[in-house]
Design a binder for these strands. Structure first.
Lengths: 194, 194, 194, 194
DNA sequence: GATGAATGAGTGTTCATTCAT
DNA sequence: CATGAATGAACACTCATTCAT
């Protein structure tokens, strides 16, 4: 990648980060381009130099989440019991949202259509879940009464449920713990029966 | 109720129904008052005669849902097994959203903060769930490892999860069936163990 | 006057009084017809039964002031020294505005074009001032270096000045006293010189 | 000042001038932002680029008047007799309102709360009057029976009176001459007596 | 690359006025 | 006489987007 292109990427990322920070308090639609520019210390003209439309920001934002998952969470999923891996993945996602130093980025959850495709490519969270459920069934750890697609779908629904609920309650409780309990119960119900 | 007041109520309800219809395609915030008026065949002035602020519509809308639940779903919850009642309640809610001839009103789910209070009073869905979980534990049908409040909370999170997901997929699948499977699994995990 | 017409007059007067009361806090233009109706306890329909336009209220209002002056102040102007009568008239006007139990009607001053004609007829305040200045000159009490019309005009300008100023300061000082001093100085300068 | 900032100032001033011109016929409150924009040949968006609220116009307007007084009238007040200076100041204000080629800007008078503070700072007209009355009393040219504050207040009341009256008569007479006569009489009454 | 002035359609909301009941 | 539902033009203000510099 050329130096110029790299600088371009970095600038884009900075703007996106700024937007995420602001979205902690204000939903995307209620955030004006000039708000973002003021916070990012750039001019409106510059914004439109890096993004051709306001909604381009969202695409950039989702890509950022995907990258974080791939780099920080996926490498940890090496347990023998796939149900443990599934729970770890949910926790990884929850903790990214609730996020260490990213407290403010919690609204990601509200936007995040985390199963659907982005630019045609499937989101990595979906792909990884499919993989884990598939392997879990192969290993006889997870009930085979439903296909992996269906399990993935249900799992994501529950995961989205917690995220959205947490968001609606303004991050007022421990997302990690609630995710643990709810998805734990779900996985318990999926235990393969003899 | 006087004839005049009745007419008032009816007109208000008509406007709300129109808004619900439109919200199938467009989220509330992106819906302008004049859109609603055009669709309802009334003038902007009339709108503000019935609702003092745009956001009043939301309150009206939630009240409508509450009333429907109370009148059409609650009377059916007379099974001996409280888990069956819980599932029936979830189905009732789902079917109201997916709604008979109301296909288009599905976006209710996106707004619906169905656990929190409205005007200070708790929403009836929340109250009823508390009641069913409590009785279920008394009868020994449901695990007592978590308090009814927590169970209610988790149940609503899952329920909200399905609704929101279905909404995000533009009502592209059978909400009733997915609700059945997901909440069924959840209740299965809650079965009291000897 | 028929009983019906009398009742009509009374109702009109009631509405005007209500409007005056409200105008203590809110200028006429910022006062909506429905505000007035709510305060007067009548329907909008009724308002338009008694006044064909909102601005009709103003005409009614001015007539009310004229009547009060004629009935309550003019009879007192019987001093030998016309300058005393002139001061009494100014005081009478000021005290009507500041008004005993009419504290709230102070904004009259802001509207009051008290020299110009109303419906073609000259306002009584103007007529009376002309009369007093004329007699004062005849009696040699007031300088004849300016015609009565001019003196009247200047006197009204000063009188209006105090009223408006007092209004702008939200009635924050004693209107009567300031009127006394300012118009007193004015009359002092008009003393006929040998 | 940078070229950009200068251009900004000029544009703002142009808009204010336009508003003043329109206010000859229409009081500020009855003047819509879009009227002003149409007359100024700019878009509504541009208006809000230069003024964050409609009422900002008023502040700008008053500042303009203050600046004009300070630059064009104050330097002329160098007579030995302070009463002459006082009259010159009144004439200067009147002539600014009636204004050379600014016939149309006469409504300034109606808005002008010319004694009260603007942004916390006292208006220069008030300060200058205080100074002149104070010096006049020291020199024994003006009666000491009232303090300078009171004299300033009364003088401003009379000055406002003429302005408002002239405005109400739609500039139908010579403001300069009337100011001369009225304030002249006032100053005559204030002559220090042995 | 970067800037920010300019645009104008669009927003939620108000309100004088009419008129069927 | 009295009501208040209905109207719709008007208002102050916002904001994504363009483009000359």
């Amino acid at each position: 990648m050329s130096k110029v292109a790299q600088k371009q990427r970095k600038r884009r990322a900075e703007i996106i980060e700024t937007a995420i920070r602001l979205m902690a308090d204000t939903p995307f639609d209620a955030l004006s381009v000039s708000d973002i520019c003021r916070a990012a210390g750039i001019s409106i003209g510059s914004f439109y130099h890096y993004f051709s439309k306001k909604s381009d920001l969202l695409v950039g934002l989702l890509t950022l989440v995907d990258d974080a998952l791939r780099e920080e969470v996926f490498p940890l999923l090496d347990r023998e019991d796939e149900r443990e891996n599934l729970l770890l993945l949910a926790r990884g996602f929850a903790s990214y949202i609730q996020g260490n130093d990213l407290e403010r980025s919690r609204l990601i959850a509200a936007i995040e259509p985390f199963d659907t495709a982005l630019d045609g490519r499937p989101r990595p969270l979906w792909t990884k879940l499919m993989e884990l459920f598939g392997r879990g069934q192969e290993k006889g750890q997870i009930t085979a009464s439903l296909p992996p697609e269906e399990l993935t779908r249900l799992y994501l629904i529950a995961l989205r449920g917690v995220s959205v609920d947490w968001t609606r309650h303004n991050g007022g409780y421990d997302l990690l713990q609630t995710t643990d309990v709810l998805l734990g119960l779900f996985l318990q119900a999926l235990r393969a029966r003899p």
